[in-house]
Amino acid sequence: MFKNALALFASLLATLIALPALAADDIAALLKRADGYRLLEESVRIETLVESYRGDTLDKERRYTVYIKPGRRSLVLMKSPAEAGQKVLMLGDQFWLLMPDTQRPLRITATQKLLGDASTGDIANMTWSDDYDGKVVDEVDIKGRRCLHLDLSAARPGVTYARIGLYLDKASKLPIKADLYVHSGKRAKEAWYEAKTVDGQLRVMSMTLLDDIQAGRRTVVRYQSIVALAAPDEFFNPAALVRNTLAGW
């Protein structure tokens, strides 16, 4: 009896000691490792397919080509017929939208940047380490994996989600799941990350978003190809959106 109580006490003590150690751990380094499963290089071109489901029925598909560069710069080209020619440019906290019929980049606010069921942030932001800060709050088991539970808060304005509850595989730091909270404090979506081995490396190749606000809505974001590629800086100039077709890039 005494031995069991002692073992329990020791276990609790170890957890109490370990958690502050994890909290004190460099959270940025932890997020960098998690980011590495989503974005292998800092400058990339990603071909993305977004499938929106109502229940089990595929409601619509959207295709995007996304260019990402360091400095929180992203350029999203919309490829589906309903949106063909539209572009969204993100420079840090600033957003511009180009509609093909207007030939004029339109300055938009962060709340105007939604792209249907998946937000621009869901598609164009592939990292957490630049945008979020936080701490490890506990450990939980998710689908048989021991996971670190990180409570992350936005470190800068303009990010899509104000707070994220992120769950990383304890051993590998692979992202497993995230609870995504909007600025009102309400949980908007639950994200599940699916990883596959590609070219000998484990990579997150799709993300499933379960909508809390619109029940029964599910969005699957599939990263069909991720190519290391540094598009020229001038392509990320708002005034150049009209001109740049990014042909050959």
Partner: peptide, 21 residues
Amino acid sequence: PPLTGVPLAAWEHFSADKAFT
């Protein structure tokens, strides 16, 4: 209806944060 452009010849220069046309 959709806009109709104007006949023109143009030169443009872009950097990361500036543009001149």
